[in-house]
């Protein structure tokens, strides 16, 4: 049972249709199809090298599949530039944190608002009038995210100096700053202790509840997956093994053999 009880969802916001992707001889994804509904938390699980990260990379336009299409908010495409996806409301975090190491927590999260800031160079150089007003408005928004993620104390710290768990949190903050409609999280809890995982799960669920953000996340910890997701897609060697509610997936024999069996040895 998912942590938030019986839930109903909106229309399909993202449809992955028959997507295949290979790197030279390696088939990372083979004929993958699934749907994500508005407001859902969907988990992608599977053993190492199953193609989970590749799937996220295809969704936000970072990898271009050789076959198949992605339909996002009614628009069908195969190729897209990542910055275009960002402007369409797709934000993400990475398996190997991709923060801007030389910048502070605050500045990193502020970059998440970049697509919403338009005042031109002239006003910026003067730092007056509209540019100053804009900066302050966005700063306020970002401060709310900082409060929400409880990272006030590291606001001015260069992120390169932060421990791993906090970096993951800052990266989530940067993604949230863009006010995404679709949030892609690649192993947001990897390498965290139990307490940090609980915090992170809570943030994910709060974002989903409060802003109705649709979330696609990759996670290895089955406990977490069962707790927070509404729907689970299982990948193995680039193929889709199963696709259903956490309970359906948990009892699916194929999944037990291929993945759960291994993980719970």
């Amino acid at each position: 049972m998912s942590a938030h009880g019986e839930r109903t969802f909106g229309d399909v916001v993202l449809r992955v249709d028959d997507v295949s992707l290979s790197f030279g001889g390696v088939q990372a994804l083979a004929n993958i199809s699934f749907e994500v509904r508005d407001g859902q938390v969907l988990a992608i699980i599977g053993p190492n090298g199953a193609g989970k990260s590749s799937m996220l990379n295809v969704i936000n336009g970072f990898y271009h599949p050789q076959q198949g299409t992605i339909t996002y908010k009614g628009e069908t495409r195969r190729q897209m530039k990542p910055h275009h996806a960002a402007r369409q409301g797709v934000a993400r975090t990475f398996q190997n944190i991709a923060l801007f190491k030389g910048m502070s927590t605050l500045d990193n999260i502020m970059t998440g608002r970049n697509t919403k800031m338009h005042k031109n160079l002239f006003w910026q150089a003067l730092h007056m009038g509209p540019a100053r007003k804009e900066e302050l408005e966005h700063r306020e928004f970002v401060e709310n995210i900082i409060d929400f993620l409880e990272i006030e104390h590291i606001r001015k710290t260069p992120v390169g100096r932060l421990p791993y768990g906090l970096q993951k949190r800052v990266e989530l903050g940067r993604a949230l700053a863009a006010e995404p409609e679709l949030l892609l999280l690649d192993e947001p809890m990897a390498g965290m202790n139990l307490e940090e995982k609980e915090d992170m799960s809570r943030y994910v669920l709060d974002v989903n509840d409060e802003f109705g953000t649709t979330i696609v996340l990759i996670e290895h910890d089955m406990g977490v997956v069962m707790d927070i997701s509404d729907h689970v897609v299982v990948l193995d060697y680039g193929r889709k093994l199963a696709d259903g509610s956490p309970d359906e997936v948990r009892t699916n024999q194929l999944v037990i053999d291929a993945y759960l069996g291994v993980a719970h040895d």
Binding site: A86, A98, L99, G112, A178
Partner: peptide, 10 residues
């Protein structure tokens, strides 16, 4: 700092 991540955030 990281041009790929920069592009991904728009």
């Amino acid at each position: 700092d990281m041009d790929i991540a920069a592009e991904i955030i728009g």
